[in-house]
């Protein structure tokens, strides 16, 4: 039953993530946290972080990770199969249709109106990762004991390095991690 649930959850992720890369993230969150409660938000954030630092698509990485956490390697197998099956069917069909008709215009029209929705959903997923780091209590408040200043500094530094200095995203994330390690070494438990 668990295998079937893993398969079905990741089948939906594979079938509805348009636009590649981060587009799968809101769907993964929906299935893995909201619908099935397989991961906590904290685990999910770690998973996204790990996915950034390893090769391979976020969706496949997540399927393997969540499957392993829930039901071992067979779980990872069923989740991954579920994740790639929609692609295999859909893309093979399109490749076949393309060979026959050589026309893609309708598909690209649909994709064009999907893009703004996908951008917004990625934004929401990004905000949901950032806010808990800054406001550990879960609600947005500007009282000094409710807000963690360090993540705000890391965020500002990361934005500066990414946008102004055009640094590599993996490097920027690792620097944020190292900064926090240094802080914890100097003053444990801050």
């Amino acid at each position: 039953m668990t295998y079937l649930k893993l398969f079905w959850a990741f089948f939906q992720i594979g079938a509805f993530s348009f636009g590649g890369g981060y587009a799968a993230m809101p769907l993964i969150k929906q299935q893995v946290i909201t619908t099935y409660h397989w991961l906590t938000m904290n685990d999910f954030t770690d998973l996204i972080t790990i996915s950034q630092m390893t090769p391979g698509p976020i969706a496949i990485n997540s399927a393997t990770f969540v499957g392993n956490q829930i039901a071992g390697i067979p779980g990872a197998f069923f989740a991954t199969i579920g994740c790639i099956l929609p692609s295999c069917v859909f893309v093979t069909f399109l490749s076949w249709a393309y060979n026959r008709y050589k026309n893609l215009s309708i598909l690209q029209d649909i994709l064009e109106s999907l893009r703004p929705a996908v951008v917004s959903m990625i934004a929401v997923a990004g905000i949901d990762i950032l806010l808990p780091a800054v406001f550990p209590s879960g609600s947005i408040s500007f009282l000094s004991d409710q807000i963690k200043l360090r993540p705000v500094l890391y965020f500002a530094a990361a934005v500066f390095l990414l946008r102004k200095k055009k640094k590599d995203p993996i490097l920027v994330m690792v620097l944020c991690g190292i900064a926090e390690i240094v802080v914890q070494l100097i003053a444990p438990g801050v």
């Binding site: 996204i48 893009r115 951008v119 990762i129 190292i178 926090e180």
Partner: peptide, 24 residues
Amino acid sequence: AMLNGMKAGVGAVILSVVYDMGGD
């Protein structure tokens, strides 16, 4: 500590991508 520090960085990476895509 490493993963916690990286959260803010991941947030920045994702929102930076959103900024580019939204701009387009």
